[in-house]
């Protein structure tokens, strides 16, 4: 019996490749020319406000929606609804908009059906049952499972065939804190084994903790992507002054030193902000310049890149 990746689907291709993906519901453009390329073995976190287009993108990726324009390839294979080669689904697992479970079928039944469809050995079933702690619930019907255990079963069905690409929509939804930790370790473990995980979540902290790369979608557009290595680095230097005159004086001094900065805050502005790498890399130099100009700040703060702040800024800026 095959167990997992029987046969290869364009092994060298990116796990997910999207070009110019556009989707419309009536006259409303829900996805607007999305381009995305996700390499193998990464955890890609996908963030967006409600209605930003996250689920539409995920459904399009899986061929559950027909895009108005654009091209999607999973593991190098074009995705095109019913014309998608059935064999591709041997290598892809997904959990979208909640687990699709038959209310009267038990945990064991669901996994037995998956084993038949995917030609899996009993060992594969035992492994996933152990990994997700579903053993005590093997003979419980899906309708009698708690929300968290339903989610565990959904994850088990998405992962039982050891896919090369996993698409998860809100994977920790309904899980208790211990379950969240278990799933986090599971996802990290998958990536360590070379599995690509595309994960959307409302839990920014969870995405920040897990993702190697993060994409932010807003009003149907991919507004930014960043690597995990960028998180935690300096993002903005903010100097606050007692008066608007002092702020203007400090601004002039910084510009004279070729440091890009701008006034901000309410009129009259008493804050100077800079995202110039020259300022971010040497805040002590900035302090010397503005103190030397006779405008000592009341505070000088280096703000760091945190995903939550960045997400809110990005989605606010684009909305504005």
């Amino acid at each position: 019996m095959a167990e997992g990746c029987a046969g290869e689907v364009n092994a060298g291709a990116p796990a997910i490749e999207v070009r110019g993906l556009t989707h419309r519901f009536g006259s409303s453009t829900v996805l607007d020319g999305i381009d995305l390329s996700i390499g193998t073995g990464l955890v890609y976190g996908f963030l967006g406000r409600n209605g930003a287009g996250k689920t539409t993108l995920i459904r399009s990726l899986l061929g559950l929606l027909a895009p108005a324009a654009g091209e999607i390839r999973l593991l190098g294979t074009p995705v095109s609804g019913g014309r998608t080669p059935a064999d591709l689904w041997r290598h892809v697992g997904y959990l979208v908009e909640g687990p699709g479970l038959y209310p009267t079928l038990t945990v064991q039944d669901h996994l037995a059906v998956a084993a038949r469809y995917r030609e899996l050995s009993p060992a594969a079933i035992d492994r996933i049952v152990d990994q997700l702690g579903l053993g005590p619930f093997s003979h419980v019907a899906a309708r009698a499972l708690s929300l968290g255990n339903r989610q565990r079963l959904g994850l088990a069905l998405a992962l039982v065939h050891r896919p090369r690409l996993v698409v998860l929509d809100e994977p920790v939804n309904g899980l208790d804190p211990a379950g969240v930790v278990e799933v986090r370790q599971l996802i990290r473990g998958l990536a360590d084994e070379g599995v690509t995980v595309f994960m959307s979540s409302h839990l920014i902290a969870e995405v920040a903790r897990l993702a190697d790369r993060v994409g932010v979608i807003h009003t149907g557009r991919l507004v930014d992507e960043l690597d995990a290595s960028q998180l935690g680095g300096p993002r903005r230097l903010v100097s606050t002054f007692r008066s608007a005159d002092a702020a203007r004086c400090a601004l002039a001094a910084l510009r004279a030193e070729h440091i890009d900065a701008a006034l901000s805050g309410a009129d009259p502005a008493t804050t100077v902000e800079s995202i110039d790498p020259a300022a971010l890399g040497a805040p002590d130099r900035v302090a010397r310049i503005i103190v030397g100009a006779g405008a000592p700040p009341t505070s000088l703060t280096v703000e760091h890149v945190d995903l939550e702040g960045l997400f809110l800024d990005l989605t606010r800026e684009v909305a504005a």
Binding site: G63, A86, L88, W89, R90, G98, G100, Y102, Y117
Partner: peptide
């Protein structure tokens, strides 16, 4: 009705 259709359509068997 049960939300299982989207999983049935992405199985490695011909529909």
């Amino acid at each position: 009705q049960d939300g299982t259709l989207r999983y049935l359509l992405a199985l490695p068997v011909p529909r």
